[in-house]
Amino acid sequence: MPDSLVIKNLNASIGERPILKDFCLTVPKGEVHAIMGPNGTGKSTLSKVLAGHPDYSVQSGSALLDGEEILGLEPDVVARAGLFLAFQYPSEIPGVTIANFIRAAIVARQAKGTPFDAKAYYAELYAKMDALKMDRKFTARFVNEGFSGGEKKRCEILQLMMLKPKYAVLDETDSGLDIDALRIVSEGVNAMRGPDTGFLVITHYQRLLEYIVPDRVHIMWDGRIVHSGGKELALELEAKGYDWVKTELATA
């Protein structure tokens, strides 16, 4: 499928320990898919493996971004191919301002020698910060340094909005956000929804999915998707907890 992110039979490990086990998932462009699952089932691992993190090794399987294999590529190549990861725990980059960081990321996507339109850049940056209700003074702050948990997550979404990837993986973007922030950030993501972008939203809470209404919900368990359904699956999960999945797995 050319217009999808297609993950097939992905087996990946950290050190000797297998984490992803024959993982399969397809996210078509224009759709929002949510992954829910207990702590430690490998949700963040999935996002890191897709992004080409050097700590993880892939044993087998494939991940095709619009038909192109991204496994085995350098992280920056995957990023420029169109995959964006909003980190569960974003890194701090001392001394590098948000404005300069996003600018460098945009310049990295342009052909060498293309003049940079600084005026247009700042206009867009400020507009998106306004939408996310971020103080414009943040442009001069160093990336994630001294940010509160919620500020970090907003900054991830700001980058997402500025870089406009084909596919975005949001790893627990809702954790650490207060109610208002949750709504604002969700509005930001919703504004980006459209036929050119696919989303994979990792979350523990149904609440986020009230704001970012998913097309599909998947339950991840021990390194693979064990159950998929519509948005009502999240409600069911919230009501029944994961024990229900466990029982279902045992009887299957």
Binding site: E74, D76, A79, I93, G95, A105, A108
Partner: peptide
């Protein structure tokens, strides 16, 4: 390595990521 990965995930090459970190320093 996490900082470098973070920057590379935004599309910067390893060299660009390192020089950004150094220039920040």
């Amino acid at each position: 390595a996490e900082q470098i990965f973070y920057m590379m995930q935004r599309g910067l090459s390893e060299g660009e990521a390192m020089s950004l970190a150094v220039n920040g320093f």
